[in-house]
Amino acid sequence: MASTTSGDVLPSGGSIFTSIPDLFFIPEFVCGGLVWMLVASTDLFPSSNPMGWVMFVSVFCFVVTTVWFFIFLCGANQGSIWPSLDVGYHFVAVVFYLSAAVQLAYVTVQLGQVVTVLDFLKIYRLDIAAVVMSFVATLLYFLHTIFSALRWKRS
């Protein structure tokens, strides 16, 4: 009777571009990088603004996803612990991005109520784009978590 090892479950090398959960790496890079750039290009208003948390989440997830991508690309993910680590990291990323997106949306709504000057309108539009991208990044990380969990259950 043949046994299935977790090394057979996780792709490595170029095959990560053909497996369903790992196809989300590139869109996660793009959306996370856009959140990072959009939030960094806005002005910071000092009254209890969560932009620091949003920046931490976007930079943290961008860097860790980059490292994660290269680990998968180099094939260093063939141990038995990697499927559960994959699910765990992407779940943490979902929770982080969801909390950052909700806080960013709240601040953007508050900013939208006081937009009167043309300069604030530009910041408001950048914040709206950042909110949209952060929710898209949350969705991508959520889908990656779900498909990674299904892969983990198969291993």
Rank of each mutant, 00 (worst) to 15 (best):
F29C: 03
S155N: 14
Y141P: 00
I123Y: 00
V67G: 14
F70R: 05
V94I: 06
L121I: 04
V64H: 07
F72C: 11
A40S: 02
D119G: 05
I26W: 10
D86C: 15
S6R: 09
M37G: 06
Q113I: 10
L118F: 09
P27G: 05
V131Q: 01
V131M: 01
Y89F: 15
S47R: 15
A130Q: 02
I20L: 13
L98Y: 08
C74G: 14
L73C: 05
V95D: 04
G88P: 09
V131K: 00
G88N: 12
S6E: 11
F24Y: 12
I71L: 15
M133C: 08
T65R: 04
R154K: 13
V92G: 13
F142A: 12
S155T: 14
A100T: 03
F45E: 08
F17P: 06
L44G: 02
P21G: 12
A129N: 02
T145R: 01
C74R: 11
I81W: 10
V39E: 00
H144I: 02
L85N: 14
D127Y: 03
V30R: 02
S19I: 08
M37S: 03
D119T: 07
K122N: 06
F69D: 05
S41K: 00
L118W: 08
S58W: 00
A149Q: 07
W53C: 04
Q110L: 15
L98H: 03
